[in-house]
């Protein structure tokens, strides 16, 4: 299968300036399974934070 080559899209090129390449390099050191577990952990953390904020906001 010949790899696809994409002509640069000017909008996406602008967004690329904001991509943290060091995070991607760290991610590529992990296995695919570890990467998926990492996003699950992040989702869990976000959920915990959201619930903590809701509890705090509910206090008089």
């Amino acid at each position: 299968m010949t790899p696809l080559v994409f002509p640069p899209d000017p909008v996406i090129e602008v967004y690329k300036h904001h991509v943290d390449e060091s995070l991607l390099r760290e991610s590529l050191k992990r296995t695919p399974e570890q990467r998926i577990l990492a996003i699950m952990s992040m989702d869990e953390l976000v959920g915990d934070l959201r619930r903590a904020i809701q509890r705090r906001n509910a206090q008089p």
Binding site: L4, F6, Y15, K16, V19
Partner: peptide, 27 residues
């Protein structure tokens, strides 16, 4: 495959995918 994922996301043309596309193309 990564290049196919990029191709279909580009074809879909959804603004919400722009950030994800930038990351995928960097990868």
């Amino acid at each position: 495959a990564l290049d196919e994922l990029i191709r279909v996301k580009r074809a879909a043309g959804r603004p919400k995918d722009f950030e994800a596309l930038a990351e995928l193309e960097k990868l």
